[in-house]
Design a protein around this nucleic acid. Structure first.
Lengths: 343, 343
DNA sequence: AAACCAACCGAAAAGGTTTTCTGAATGTAT
DNA sequence: ATACATTCAGAAAACCTTTTCGGTTGGTTT
């Protein structure tokens, strides 16, 4: 049964209504509500009561029109389903939500046309700035140059070095992971990673290799085993490596999914984790790490922090202070049962 | 090195600029741009060229102020990290993005105070409507009554039956899952589910029991085995059930995580899936289903569609047409290797 | 008593767009 | 040539808030 809404909303209360009810001019009402000091305490009280009674909410459109600042920012993501954008987005939303800023969310689905379309819409709404969130750490083409508001690129940096970009330090992360394994007393470390077409995969591998070299060691097999970001690849790679290099005593995996596969294969091969072999994953995806047997140590990219930092940089840029270039935030190792020191 | 931005953005072009450049009044410019028919073709062309040259974008604030409609809606979610909100959000974003509507995203983190705060901010920005997305199907308290714009509740319905709510048909989903297992020739179906405090768990269990009854059968153990939404519980429950009811030939799991645990346990017990036992999960979470051995059949709640429908209902409500009550959308079974007909 | 000061309030402009109504110009019918 | 219809352009109001500046009131100083 379809009905017409008899919506009992006559009209949202305006400052004029408040002023009339309080028996003052709109100028005074405005000053009273905004805490300006040109109004007597008693009058202010009267105005505030009136505002309360009418549940008055100042019209942000009118205010934005007047002040040139809207207190809104656009958050442009390329793929919401990807699990990297979400934490970044949360961090940003968090940092903004603390203040008086609201966030427009747009998903471009990796389509440049759609992205352009969204940018236009956002500019038309006079956002104060934009955050562009990518799903890979490979640099991406910048937005068309004539965007009249500050832009910050998060996770996926801009190709243009004069833009402001925030991303995760994947080289450092690779180093951290290997150093953690070494600190557990391991020496024969294999690195199983995903699609080599990802810059993140290459960076982590570079960091891992560097850390091994620094310790006077070499990765098992003398290389990184690239494949796909799947459990299946993890299983296959682990079996192959154990067969060819029986003395392997640690796996640094390029993702938690790969690590899950490695863990499964090791169990089936009768290798004890963490007794004989240590395993560390990447991404610290709770649902995978905490359900693994044993629970999985993993590298956390701190994406939420990344989002927060991006928001802060955007704030700064809106206030006119910019620090162009790519800022790489450190990752951290979250230790669980799959890596323990050799006793 | 921090620098002051020499931002080369003098000022966004306004309609006045366009009009001046085209040598017409702003009224004519407006009409030309908006396709009104009070303007000569040749004049319109001149205006459009001018607008193009200045890359003019009409100020949505001014327009919204005047027309009373802003073309924005608020999307209020209670937990972004939860994986149920995201697809709904995507569907809604999608449905809106197709038109001229932009979406404000707010995450209340399950905190009523923060929610209230966000609602106020959104109303201050004069959104045309609100979608409230929950992370569980348990009914939730409605927003405070004096919200002057239409509200649609998605996934988590409102406790107030006169509100508009869209959710997933979990009873029907339970029935579907069991019917699928029966159609594969199974008769001894066990139902392993998660936290019984979730309405979704109860609903699915009810649907499953009903389907068994309708087929003249009974669930293995005469009940649903509730526990937690984890792989660990799936493993433990499967072991227990196989021990106590050795003739079990199918598992309906309350989540894909539980199903993963069940699959692991069955493999370790030497029970062949899908040869001896069929397993069906719930949520159709790709990363879990497609990486399972064998790949996991699962019930998909179609959350993206749910988001889209919510957006459509909101559109309708904004246009004055409302259909109060809880609308339950059907789920569907996505068949993979873990369930095949007995040959 | 005159001049001055402080405290408070209100009028008005500005911000950019849409829409209505009036006005001008051109063309058509008588 | 006059009356009239038609087509197009522009002036102005409206939307709601903030802020500046001028004005009023009452009290204080010389």
């Amino acid at each position: 049964m379809t009905t017409q809404s008899g919506s009992a909303s006559p009209r949202a209360a305006t400052l004029t209504d408040v002023a009339r009810l309080a028996g003052v001019s709109i100028a005074t009402a405005s000053k009273a509500i905004n805490g300006r000091d040109q109004v007597k305490a008693e009058t202010r009280l009267r105005v505030l009561e009136a505002a309360e009674r009418l549940s008055f909410a100042p019209n942000a459109l009118a205010r934005g029109l007047l002040k040139g600042r809207t207190g809104t920012v656009g958050l442009l993501t390329s793929d919401l389903e990807g699990r990297f954008s979400i934490p970044v987005l949360m961090g940003a939303e968090d940092a903004f939500g603390a203040g008086r800023v609201s966030v427009f969310l747009c998903d471009a689905r990796g389509d440049a046309i759609r992205e352009q379309h969204h940018v236009r819409a956002l500019l038309s709404r006079r956002v104060d700035g934009l955050i562009v969130v990518g799903s890979r750490t490979d640099p991406r083409p910048p937005l068309s140059a004539d965007v009249p508001v500050p832009v910050v690129y998060a996770y996926a940096p801009s190709e243009d070095a004069s833009d402001v970009s925030i991303t995760a330090d994947n080289v450092g992360a690779g180093r951290l992971a290997v150093e953690h394994l070494l600190s557990c007393g391991r020496r024969r470390v294999a690195h199983v990673s995903g699609d080599p077409g990802y810059k993140a995969a290459q960076d982590r591998a570079a960091g891992a290799a560097a850390a091994m070299t620094a310790a006077g060691l070499e990765l098992v097999g003398g290389q990184t085993f690239f494949g796909s970001w799947s459990e299946g690849w993890g299983r296959g790679a682990a079996r192959m490596i154990v067969e060819q290099h029986g003395d392997v005593d640690a796996f640094f995996c390029g993702s938690d999914q790969i690590a899950r596969g490695v863990l499964d294969a090791l169990r089936e091969l009768g290798r004890d984790v963490p007794g004989e072999v240590s395993v560390i994953g990447f991404d610290n995806w709770e649902v995978l790490t905490t359900n693994a047997r044993p629970q999985l140590t993993s590298v956390d990219m701190n994406l939420e922090r990344l989002g927060r930092v991006a928001a802060q940089r955007l704030f700064a840029a809106i206030d006119g202070t910019v620090r162009p270039g790519v800022e790489e935030l450190p990752c951290r190792v979250v230790t669980r049962a799959s890596t323990v020191p050799i006793s």
